[in-house]
Measured scan of single mutants.
Amino acid sequence: IDAAQIVDEALEQGITLFVVNNRLQYETSRDSIPTELLNKWKQHKQELIDFLNQLD
């Protein structure tokens, strides 16, 4: 699994991931984030931050 897949998966569930001051953040209108997704974010945090920083 790679960062792009995780970002896409989040988007499919209505969650936008982004980076502020090198910290992973998210925006969503959902009430809660699925635990499975949160765990993936934690496991791949640095990859996600690097990936999202490249997009900007």
Rank of each mutant, 00 (worst) to 15 (best):
V7P: 00
Q54I: 09
D31Q: 08
D8R: 14
V20T: 11
H44M: 07
N22P: 00
K42N: 14
L38K: 08
R23W: 09
A10N: 01
S32I: 10
F51K: 02
L24A: 00
N22D: 11
W41Q: 00
I6W: 07
L17E: 01
V20L: 11
V20C: 13
K42C: 13
G14M: 04
T35E: 13
L48W: 01
I1L: 11
Y26I: 07
D50N: 12
T16H: 12
L17F: 05
Q13H: 15
E12F: 08
E9C: 05
E36R: 07
E9L: 04
K40M: 10
Q46N: 09
L24M: 03
T16A: 06
Q46C: 07
Q5E: 09
L38Q: 06
A10K: 02
N53Y: 07
A4W: 11
I1E: 10
G14L: 04
P34M: 03
I15Y: 08
V20A: 11
I33Y: 03
Q54S: 14
T16Q: 10
T35S: 12
K45T: 14
N53W: 07
D56G: 14
E47L: 12
F18G: 06
Q25Y: 15
S29Q: 11
E12C: 07
I6K: 01
F18V: 13
N21M: 06
I6V: 07
A10Q: 01
I49E: 04
Q43W: 07
D2L: 12
N21A: 09
L55A: 11
H44N: 08
L52S: 00
K42W: 13
T35N: 11
E47K: 08
D31N: 07
A10V: 01
D31R: 01
L17T: 00
D50R: 10
D50H: 11
R30D: 05
N21V: 04
A3R: 02
R30N: 10
K40A: 05
G14S: 04
K45L: 15
R30E: 06
V19Q: 02
R30A: 09
D31S: 07
K42L: 14
Y26N: 02
D8Q: 15
N39K: 11
R23V: 15
Q54N: 13
I1W: 12
R30T: 06
E12K: 15
A3F: 09
Q43K: 14
T16F: 14
L24K: 00
W41H: 02
A10C: 04
I1N: 08
N21H: 08
I6H: 02
F51T: 02
Q54Y: 11
L52W: 02
N22I: 03
F51N: 01
H44R: 04
L52C: 02
N53E: 08
L17N: 00
I15Q: 00
W41K: 00
A3W: 07
I15W: 03
L24R: 00
K40S: 04
D56A: 14
A3H: 03
W41F: 11
I33F: 05
L17K: 00
E36D: 11
V20Q: 12
N39E: 15
V19N: 02
F51A: 02
E36I: 09
L52A: 00
Q25N: 10
Q54G: 14
L38S: 06
E12T: 12
V7F: 09
F18I: 14
L38E: 06
D56F: 11
N22S: 06
G14E: 04
D31G: 07
N22F: 05
K45F: 13
S32D: 10
L37F: 07
F18L: 14
Q13E: 08
L55V: 12
A10F: 05
S32T: 13
I15S: 01
D31A: 06
L38C: 07
V7T: 03
L52R: 00
Q46A: 10
L55R: 15
L24W: 01
G14F: 04
E47Y: 07
A10M: 03
Q46H: 08
D2G: 10
A10S: 05
I49P: 00
E27F: 13
Q54A: 14
E9F: 05
T16D: 05
Q46T: 09
V20D: 09
Q13M: 14
K40P: 01
K45P: 03
A10R: 01
H44E: 01
V20F: 11
E12H: 10
V19I: 07
D2Q: 11
L38A: 06
A3T: 06
K40D: 03
E12Q: 14
Q54M: 12
L37G: 01
N22A: 06
N39A: 12
Q13S: 07
V7K: 02
L48A: 01
Q54F: 09
N21R: 05
D56R: 04
D56P: 14
I6G: 00
L48G: 00
D2H: 11
S29T: 10
L48T: 01
N39Q: 12
L24D: 00
A4F: 06
D8E: 14
